[in-house]
């Protein structure tokens, strides 16, 4: 079962790469019809989804209990969020950035230890799933806004019409990401209260979740200041992606967090 799940992950990775290559090629040629690359992306996401289902079936719980599983899930969330924004805003080429990010995460997942991690008792609650899914939805949307912010800055001088669309994408995915992350903070607080008796812990992972949350609260409000709207918000969003990455992996690797996950 794990073997099959791995095959599906590798197939998804290959398709992501092909989809990326196609969109890069079209981008270089100045061809703005994204049909083929998006179809490939859609198929890759479907295959990736099967890999997640197989993994859940194999371990008997939602695939979010160790580094391998969260990487698999994170990369899936990034691809899915990209696809959603692609369909909603037709013009975006965020996949030129976000699909390499998703593929990198997936390749990392394939390379780390796949061993089964037993679900310790505190993880056996619906709040665990809600908390983790909401966090990764937030992370993924912040990744999309990072990509859109990059293209906003590229188009700012040359193409005001396109840059307006990118600005809207940045703003929309920041607010959506912020909302999902708020849901993650809410469910995390309830879960911690039920499992450990406190809704807040003074330890690195909790603190960094708070940092990420507040950081994007600042950006969301930046949109309301004319002097911040556009360029400053875009730069803040790009830097925000580093905060996302640090919150997800940096804290675990550098700070030896005692977060229960």
């Amino acid at each position: 079962m794990q073997y099959t799940a791995n095959l599906f992950s590798i197939a998804a990775l290959l398709l992501y790469s092909v989809s990326f290559a196609v969109s890069l090629w079209k981008f270089v040629k100045g061809d703005s019809r994204p049909f083929l690359s998006r179809l490939l992306l859609l198929i890759a996401i479907a295959i990736h989804f099967v890999a997640l289902i197989l993994r859940s079936y194999y371990v008997g719980h939602a695939p979010m209990a160790n580094l391998y599983e969260t990487l698999l899930f994170f990369s899936f969330s990034v691809s899915l969020a990209t696809l959603v924004y692609n369909f909603r805003y037709k013009v975006g080429i965020m996949e030129l950035i976000s699909i390499p990010v998703a593929s990198g995460l997936l390749a990392f997942a394939i390379s780390v230890d796949h061993k089964f991690t037993p679900l310790f008792l505190a993880l056996k609650t619906i709040w665990f799933e809600v908390h983790v899914m909401a966090s990764f939805a937030g992370y993924a949307l912040f990744t999309v806004s990072f990509a859109a912010a990059f293209f906003f800055l590229c188009h700012m001088k040359r193409d005001p019409v396109k840059s307006k669309v990118y600005e809207e994408i940045v703003n929309s995915s920041n607010v959506w990401g912020f909302s999902f992350f708020s849901l993650a903070m809410f469910s995390g607080a309830i879960w911690a209260y039920l499992a450990w008796g406190n809704y807040w812990f003074w330890e690195p992972k909790t603190l960094w979740s708070f940092i990420l949350w507040f950081y994007f609260a600042g950006i969301v409000h930046g949109h309301y200041l004319k002097s911040w709207r556009g360029k400053k918000v875009a730069w803040m969003t790009i830097f925000g992606f580093l905060v996302v990455i640090f919150t997800y992996v940096g804290v675990g690797l550098l700070m030896k967090s005692s977060h229960k996950l």
Partner: peptide, 24 residues
């Protein structure tokens, strides 16, 4: 003012970042 909101959020973020390392 929303400007103050933004200044405060980034002050709060900076203090928490420093704190997360001081904690260790």
């Amino acid at each position: 003012s929303i400007k103050l909101t933004i200044v405060l959020t980034y002050l709060i973020v900076s203090v928490t970042v420093t704190g997360s390392f001081a904690l260790l």
